[in-house]
């Protein structure tokens, strides 16, 4: 019974705790994230949004002394199961980081490297073009594919990072405040891009910007530090974005989204 999952869920957490040492940074998260939707995780600073996001593709493994209890299920498979290789998890669940971090290589190599190391056998030129088109970057860079990725603007670099991620054909794309280092116009382009990407991918985004969450997401998870003083973050409310912003159940969510928080 445990592992039977309805197909519309891309990923599901069950009684998830994330520890740093003996301290639970995130406690008791139960979420079902729908396929081909944008799910936003919002909440005040230090409540564990990024920690939770990074747990989805096991990036927290690099933090010494961090560990997870409970389950994160991808197609019924626990990502933290014994026989699961974190490298495989990260191929299926790609990630875009807060600051654009292209490789110090050419634009072309930025896309092709991930494909190459994962054993991609198809036509590389085609893959690069499709990925760049998918990230709405192709028209801007098609004449300078051999140029360094560092010559691009911040917004272009971030879209290159998105292209790099979709090149490895993940099922889910995690975005950790992908627009927080960008100007409003670049931010808008990333947001538009997310609407296109959700045709094919499930997107989970962490954001500080509540307007952004309201604009781009279909579902929103509200995170908050627990009241009991343990300084451990948890999801206090998770539902459709519309509900969260217009008719929240939890008083704390209402205070936060209406700006009365704190």
């Amino acid at each position: 019974m445990e592992n039977i999952q309805t197909p519309e869920y891309a990923i599901e957490t069950k009684n998830l705790f994330i520890f740093y040492g003996s301290f639970p940074a995130v406690s008791e998260v139960n979420m079902r994230i729908e396929k081909q939707k944008v799910t936003a995780i919002i909440g005040p600073s230090g409540c564990g949004k990024s920690t939770l996001l990074r747990a989805f593709n096991r990036m927290n493994d690099f933090v010494p002394s961090s560990y997870v209890t409970g389950e994160i299920l991808l197609q019924g498979q626990n990502l933290y199961g014994k026989d699961i290789d974190p490298v495989e998890v990260r191929r299926k669940i790609g990630m875009v980081f807060q600051k654009p971090n292209p490789f110090p290589k050419s634009i072309y190599e930025n896309i092709s490297w991930g494909a190459k190391i994962n054993g991609f056998k198809g036509n590389m030129d085609e893959l690069v073009e499709q990925s760049l088109r998918g990230a709405a970057l192709w028209e801007e860079v098609k004449d300078k594919l051999k140029k360094s990725a560092y010559e691009l603007s911040g917004g272009q670099q971030q879209r290159l990072c998105i292209a790099r991620t979709i090149a490895i054909q993940p099922e889910i794309i995690l975005m950790d405040e992908p627009a927080s280092a960008l100007d409003p116009i670049s931010t808008l382009r990333i947001e538009e891009l997310m609407q296109e990407l959700k045709q094919n991918y499930t997107i989970i985004i962490v954001t500080h910007n509540m307007q952004q969450a309201a604009r781009v997401s279909d579902y929103t998870a509200m995170m908050m530090l627990e009241k009991d003083g343990s300084r451990s973050g948890t999801v206090i409310e998770f539902s459709e974005t519309k509900k969260i912003f217009t008719n929240p159940k939890d008083k704390r969510t209402e205070d936060y989204v209406t700006g009365r928080f704190g």
Partner: peptide
């Protein structure tokens, strides 16, 4: 951030070290 970028596209530790 460079290591994370490499891990993020599914590189192993060794691929990250060797290529980046």
């Amino acid at each position: 951030s460079l290591r994370q970028a490499a891990f993020g596209v599914g590189a192993t530790r060794w691929q990250t070290v060797w290529h980046h």
